[in-house]
Amino acid sequence: HNLTITQGKLFFHYNPKLCLSEIHKMEEVSGTKGRQERNDIALKTNGDQASCENELLKFSYIRTSFDKILLRWEPYWPPDFRDLLGFMLFYKEAPYQNVTEFDGQDACGSNSWTVVDIDPPLRSNDPKSQNHPGWLMRGLKPWTQYAIFVKTLVTFSDERRTYGAKSDIIYVQTDATNPSVPLDPISVSNSSSQIILKWKPPSDPNGNITHYLVFWERQAEDSELFELDYCLKGLKLPSRTWSPPFESEDSQKHNQSEYEDSAGECCSCPKTDSQILKELEESSFRKTFEDYLHNVVFVPRKTSSGTGAEDPRPSRKRRSLGDVGNVTVAVPTVAAFPNTSSTSVPTSPEEHRPFEKVVNKESLVISGLRHFTGYRIELQACNQDTPEERCSVAAYVSARTMPEAKADDIVGPVTHEIFENNVVHLMWQEPKEPNGLIVLYEVSYRRYGDEELHLCVSRKHFALERGCRLRGLSPGNYSVRIRATSLAGNGSWTEPTYFYVTDYLDVPSNIA
């Protein structure tokens, strides 16, 4: 807008934040220059609390790290170098490059900038070799853009010569660093050979998330399962459950009422301010606690030095998902009996873990797994792929695949051998790939016309006998059925096997 004052003059007093240069501009645009008398524009009460600059400061050096910015700028000295009290560095987070010096300023003089007072450097006698002032900004957020400017702080001049310097606002972004852990990993099994893994992005990506790394490792069953005799009275049979499938998407929606109208769909109840505040506090606490764990609990591995020492970490090797089922080394339970199943799973520490690289999504279907087997899954978020990966501390989750139908069934015939004193040795093959492992066998036998009897055969007993022995049988026709019990439950009964026990007292003698 054009402003013209045809008559009258300007009068400025007691404006401590208004620089004289701005008042002189007002004289020019209003056409009143030359009308004012000496005392109409006070030299001592206008701009006496402001830094009124008329020179431009330029930054000469900028260096960044993930949490620091090192700045240096060209030296500046007023005509009387004693008038320079120091520099004021202003900075704040700036997602967009549209910041002005006066953003967030209120009537009390406060604003949204963080201000650092910096002492002037030592003055050199040689004007050509003056030290460049600077400042190291610490405690910054990774991968965050900051708006920065600097200006001088000078003393009051009796001659009211307006001098000083100020830089333009520059924008500097800190470097990326390792992201925080992925949030809320959930693993479920939808079949006997697959596990579905879902997660949420890290709360602090500290860069642009480029991919996720998912490692999985087959877990050995508890050692007590191999040692305890679950045929003993009072000892509860062990059981394991597989990871249940995901709930429906509708039930997972946030901010939804727990109660549904019987007449149909209901609208979600909005969260109160107290609920939102509580969630923010919980989120802040979780982030602080995660940072504490990362800094205190997890110790970084030592990389190899120039002395030739090897990095103890196993090298990563990509495998196809079809090879995942046989990740671990199978060892027989008892070496003397080769027909026992290889369900003991000690994992070799030198073995390469299978892994998958996930790009542009937060889910993965891990296939080719062994049925009813526990897996430990390790999830890392990465925001750099080359020249070397920059990934987060791992988040861990466990899951067990679903049982395989008929995996616990005894394959092959049940054979028998009759000894003296009416002892019958029953023999059968253990299931080759049971659900988890076989903890015991149930032997059901009966003599024709009598009630059915049951015998429990422990895992250890089966390994020693290759089956079991029935003792003290009365003469007669017998039928026997056997079924295995694994961590997933009972298998199917075998087809009945028949044998006849004679009275050993009636056996004919070869003595003449």
Rank of each mutant, 00 (worst) to 15 (best):
D204H: 15
D204M: 01
P205K: 08
P205H: 03
G207D: 02
N208C: 13
N208E: 05
N208Q: 15
V214W: 01
F215D: 07
F215W: 01
W216D: 01
D222P: 07
S223K: 09
E224Y: 12
L225Y: 08
F226P: 11
D229E: 05
D229N: 10
C231M: 01
L232S: 09
L232Y: 05
G234Q: 06
G234V: 13
G234M: 13
S239N: 04
R240G: 08
R240Q: 02
S243V: 09
S243M: 12
P245S: 12
F246K: 09
F246A: 04
E247Y: 11
E247F: 11
E247C: 06
S248R: 11
D250H: 12
D250G: 06
Q256S: 03
Y259S: 12
A263K: 03
E265N: 09
E265T: 12
S268P: 10
S268M: 12
S268I: 15
K271G: 05
K271M: 12
T272I: 06
D273C: 02
S274I: 03
S274A: 15
Q275P: 09
Q275H: 06
K278F: 10
E279H: 07
E279S: 09
E281D: 03
S283W: 04
F285Q: 05
F285G: 02
K287R: 06
T288G: 11
D291L: 07
Y292T: 09
Y292P: 06
H294M: 15
H294T: 02
N295R: 14
V297P: 06
V297D: 08
R301G: 01
K302T: 15
K302N: 13
S304V: 13
G306Y: 05
G308R: 08
D311C: 04
P312N: 11
R313E: 12
P314E: 14
S315P: 09
S315G: 14
R316W: 12
R316I: 15
K317N: 05
K317Y: 06
R318G: 04
D323G: 11
V324R: 15
V327W: 02
V327K: 03
V327G: 09
V327C: 15
T333P: 03
V334I: 15
V334Y: 08
A336H: 11
A336S: 10
F337H: 04
F337M: 14
P338F: 09
P338R: 10
T343I: 10
T343P: 08
V345R: 12
V345S: 12
V345K: 10
T347P: 05
E350T: 13
E351A: 11
H352Q: 12
H352N: 04
P354M: 13
P354A: 03
V359E: 10
V359S: 06
V359N: 12
N360C: 05
K361L: 11
E362Q: 09
E362L: 07
S363E: 15
S363N: 07
I366R: 02
S367Q: 10
G368I: 04
H371N: 05
H371F: 06
H371K: 04
R376P: 00
E378R: 05
L379V: 06
C382Q: 01
Q384K: 01
Q384M: 04
T386V: 10
E388Q: 13
E388Y: 15
E389C: 08
R390N: 12
R390P: 09
S392K: 01
A394S: 06
A395I: 05
Y396R: 08
R400E: 14
R400F: 08
K406D: 13
D409P: 02
G412H: 11
G412P: 04
V414S: 02
E417Y: 03
I418K: 11
E420F: 14
V424C: 13
W428V: 01
N435A: 02
L437C: 14
L440K: 09
L440Q: 15
L440A: 10
V443D: 01
S444Y: 13
Y445A: 15
Y445V: 10
R447S: 05
G449K: 06
E452S: 03
L453Y: 01
L453M: 06
L453D: 05
L455R: 07
V457A: 04
V457M: 13
R459V: 13
K460S: 11
F462G: 02
A463P: 05
E465L: 07
E465I: 08
R466I: 09
R466V: 03
G467S: 03
C468N: 01
L470T: 02
R471Y: 12
G472L: 08
P475W: 12
G476N: 00
Y478N: 00
S479C: 03
V480G: 01
I482V: 10
R483F: 01
A484M: 03
L487Q: 05
L487G: 01
A488N: 08
N490K: 03
G491Q: 15
S492K: 00
E495W: 15
F499E: 01
F499N: 00
Y500P: 05
V501G: 00
V501C: 06
L505E: 13
V507M: 14
